[in-house]
């Protein structure tokens, strides 16, 4: 087998177009999922049992079911619900495969992110919280000045893994017609039959995105950890 340069030249621009969609989906996942996940983590740690239980329920539901199935429910399933078809705003959203994919990514990563931050928030030594209370900090100040900064430092290495998981999970969007990297690759495969080359190239695109992502997190982690170890 020889390397088919013509095939590669044809595939590259299409995969690059797909990569933009992948990056968009992942960026929405991280950009929206991170704050939502943080909020959900705080909800799950709330003293109110009902609120905490609701948060736990959400996290359990989305961590306990496959994202592929969630995607099918959002895109194919909801389209059969009359209320959604008949409400213009909802139908505008749910008939769009890209929107559904973005939503699924956000719903999923929110659940996982909440788990990461719940653990990180609970790992803060109680004494450091008490020191903040003892000087008269309000709950909000305690949260923004002490708890969140410390939780971020605890969570960062694990959250980096979650971020690249998000990038990889966006490939599922190809199953509901979204032409991100994997979607483009599948189309090219049926047009050219250069299966190995096409998917090797597709992998390379994912790899580059994820290594860049991990690199960015490593820089952030080094900066945040400054002084935290002797």
């Amino acid at each position: 087998m020889t390397l088919d340069l013509e095939l590669i030249a044809m595939a590259l621009p299409l995969l690059a177009t797909g990569a933009l969609v992948t990056i968009k989906l992942a960026a929405v996942g991280v950009g929206v999922g991170l704050p939502l996940g943080l909020g959900l983590a705080l909800l799950r740690l709330a003293p109110n049992r009902l609120l905490a239980g609701l948060g736990d329920g959400y996290a359990g539901l989305f961590r306990g079911t496959p994202m592929l199935v969630q995607l099918f429910i959002l895109y194919y399933g909801l389209a059969e619900v009359p209320v959604i078809r008949q409400t213009p705003a909802l139908w505008w959203f749910f008939r769009d495969a890209l929107f559904c994919a973005g939503l699924a990514v956000v719903l999923n990563t929110t659940a996982y992110t909440s788990e990461i931050f719940r653990t990180a928030l609970r790992a803060i030594p109680q004494g450091q919280i008490e020191a903040a209370l003892a000087v008269g900090m309000r709950p909000w100040t305690l949260l923004t000045r002490i708890r969140l900064p410390l939780a971020f430092r605890n969570a960062l290495p694990v959250y980096a893994s979650e971020a690249i998981t998000v990038v990889k999970e966006t490939s599922l969007a190809s199953t509901i017609t979204v032409l991100e990297i994997t979607g483009q690759a599948k189309r090219l495969m049926s047009q050219t039959f250069g299966i190995l080359e096409i998917f090797a190239l597709a992998s390379l695109f994912y790899l580059v995105i994820n290594l860049a992502c991990l690199g960015a997190f490593a820089v952030l982690e080094r900066r945040q950890a400054r002084g935290m170890r002797p």
Binding site: P125, G127, Q128, E130, A131, A132, A134, V135, G136, M137, T141, R145, I146, P149, L150, R153, Q224, G227, M228
Partner: peptide, 27 residues
């Protein structure tokens, strides 16, 4: 009231100076 703890309980993400200015500024 000011409390000094057995285990110091400094905030590890802040410098010595930051530990002292924190409540001055934010409380």
């Amino acid at each position: 009231t000011g409390m000094v703890f057995q285990n110091f309980n400094l905030w590890p993400h802040r410098t010595a100076l930051g530990n002292v200015t924190e409540a001055l500024i934010h409380v």
